[in-house]
């Protein structure tokens, strides 16, 4: 087991290497550059800028230089936000996104699994229909509709929660509405996923055996059904966690959250090479580490998986 974890962990290194290399070159092959969109600069000034950022060197040279910096934990200066480095920008925005994303995902997991169990056990009854209608709404209604509706209801009408904002004296109340909004599609997906797999396990032979042994229905569900039925949900959590952190740009805009989503999109539009790279690296790191964690958890949940 320990051996497997170490080997699996080491395999993250080449993955990250490939991601860094590919995105480094891909961005540079995209048309335009960080300084091309502005009004025409005098040739000498442009040369000076390029020289300052070492962009006058050959591509492989730039790559090696960048790679070396990354290995030292330095993502370089931002080309657009001239007063801050990429490290600073990420350090300011990522924690907010992680807090928002974690709370939203936790909400989605608990509510989703709970609703999934309820609907599976009450299949084709009103509880099931209600829950699955809610799930369809969650999957199909865009966040920029759900967000303002929640703002209207809870902030404007009921005046329970602040409309928007993040830091300040209202914290952590400001967290509730964006987290709720962000969790909705994930909640809906998890509810449907867990309902489907619980229904499948409920019909399995080993659940029939458990019932034939005289176990209470609650014991059958808690002990015999859930462990197997929640495996698909666990494997969904890896991509969901990384997706919920960066995929929150709409929610960040609606609720004015200083998160990573907005910076990510802006940096791509600006061709802010170093900032894009920094975001991509941190994002992929979260993704591969989450998948790694899911693999490990899977091994504990499913005894049929042996690590050799």
């Amino acid at each position: 087991m320990t051996k497997f974890i170490i080997r699996r962990f080491l395999s993250l290194i080449p993955t990250m290497f490939v991601i860094i290399t590919l995105s480094f070159f891909l961005i540079r092959f995209a048309p335009g550059g960080p300084f091309s969109s502005e009004k025409k600069l005098p040739e000498a000034v442009l040369q000076n800028i390029l020289k300052k950022y070492h962009m006058d060197e050959s591509m492989p040279m730039q790559y090696l230089r960048y790679f070396n910096d990354v290995l030292h934990g330095d993502f370089g200066p931002s080309y657009k936000y001239k007063e801050s480095t990429v490290n600073e920008l990420i350090a300011q925005s990522f924690p907010n996104s992680i807090v928002l994303g974690s709370v939203a995902l936790a909400l989605a997991v608990f509510a989703g699994i709970g609703v999934g169990i309820t609907s599976a056990l009450r299949q084709n009854r009103w509880q099931d229909y209600l829950a699955m209608s809610l799930a369809v709404i969650g999957i199909s209604v865009p966040l920029f509709v759900i967000g303002p509706v929640l703002q209207l209801a809870f902030s404007m009408q009921l005046k329970w929660l602040p409309v928007s904002g993040w830091y300040g004296r209202k914290w952590p109340l400001t967290l509730i509405l964006p987290a709720l909004t962000l969790s909705f599609p994930y909640f809906a997906y998890i509810a449907r996923l867990s309902r489907a797999s619980i229904l499948e396990v409920l019909r399995s032979d080993y659940v029939r055996t458990a019932r034939a042994k005289g176990l209470k229905e609650s014991a059958v569900v808690l002990k015999h059904v859930l462990k197997g039925a929640l495996l698909p949900v666990v494997s969904y959590l890896g991509p969901a966690f990384s997706g919920i952190i960066t995929g929150s740009i709409v929610v960040e805009s609606v609720f004015v959250v200083p998160g990573v989503g907005r910076i990510f999109v802006q940096s791509a539009l600006n061709r802010d090479y170093t900032l894009i790279m920094g975001e991509v690296i941190v994002y992929s790191l979260i993704l591969v580490v989450m998948n790694f964690a899911v693999d490990i958890v899977y091994g504990f949940l499913d005894p049929r998986i042996s690590y050799k």
């Binding site: 399995s204 032979d205 080993y206 659940v207 055996t209 034939a212 197997g228 499913d302 005894p303």
Partner: peptide, 18 residues
Amino acid sequence: GNKISMIFQDPMTSLNPF
């Protein structure tokens, strides 16, 4: 499971694999 117990056809799927 106490006074009347059962065994089923397919032993491969009748025990909980987890």
